[in-house]
Amino acid sequence: MVQFCIQVLAEDGEVHVSLCNGQGGTPVDKPKREWHNSWQVVAMATEAHLILSAVGPFENENYPSYKCTGYRSQDKGFRVENALLHIFSRSFPCISVQITHMEEVVEGENVHYNIPTELSDYVFRRFLSPDSVHPVKLVQDFFLKELLAHWSVSMATASAPFLIAAKRLHSCCHCVDNSQCYSRA
């Protein structure tokens, strides 16, 4: 059914699925059924590239053409009190992460690492430089001033490297496992 919906769904359209409380398999369902005993509505919609946008009470008066049909061809209708409306919309296309290779000098040695391209513009912003008016710099200055009022504190003027050589970190912290450290390429 969901596969058919996606074929006729407008780009900004929604799919509304009403289920008796507990049938959806979502955390909103109270009482929540076991996963295998639910419609697994989110998982099924995911197969059609839909995401759950909202869950709310199903108010059948908002749907004048809604007709409660029988349960398994019996005359017994569904109980719509406490039923839930699951609203699905198209998910954004999955875009693979672009990687940028970075290189910088740390303690006189070249260090190579990869970061997501969308973060590469933010790596060297220099917002903590002495002449910066960036909010992070203002907060840092405020904290430094308050600390200086109570303790002897000094601030390093050189920019701190993003990576610390694994052998230096290991020599400082003997309990650190080398597998958890960045290493030079």
Rank of each mutant, 00 (worst) to 15 (best):
S132D: 05
L138S: 06
D141K: 14
H174L: 01
D131K: 09
T157Q: 04
P161I: 06
P130F: 12
H170P: 01
R168H: 11
R168T: 11
D141S: 09
V153Y: 10
Y122L: 07
S152D: 03
S154N: 10
A160F: 15
L138K: 07
R125V: 03
A156L: 05
H174Y: 02
L147M: 15
V139D: 06
F143Y: 14
Q140M: 14
S152R: 00
L128E: 04
A165R: 12
D131S: 07
D121T: 06
L148M: 10
A149D: 07
P135M: 03
R125T: 04
L148G: 12
S129W: 05
A165N: 12
H174G: 02
K137P: 02
S159E: 15
S129I: 01
Q140F: 15
V139I: 12
F142M: 14
Q140H: 15
S152K: 00
L144C: 05
C172H: 06
V136A: 13
S132L: 04
A166E: 09
Q140A: 15
S159D: 12
H134K: 04
Q140V: 11
L163P: 04
A158Y: 08
A156F: 04
P130C: 08
L128R: 05
K137Y: 08
T157N: 04
V136Y: 14
L169R: 07
V136G: 13
V133A: 06
S132T: 07
C173Q: 08
A160Y: 15
V123S: 05
S132H: 06
L138F: 02
F162K: 00
A166T: 04
H170C: 08
L169Q: 07
P135A: 04
A166M: 05
A165F: 11
S159M: 11
T157A: 02
A160M: 14
S152M: 00
Y122I: 02
V153C: 14
C172S: 07
L144V: 05
P161L: 08
F162I: 00
Q140R: 14
L144T: 07
C173L: 13
K145F: 11
I164R: 02
A149K: 11
L138W: 03
L138V: 02
A156S: 11
W151M: 02
Q140C: 13
I164L: 07
A158T: 15
H150K: 13
C173T: 09
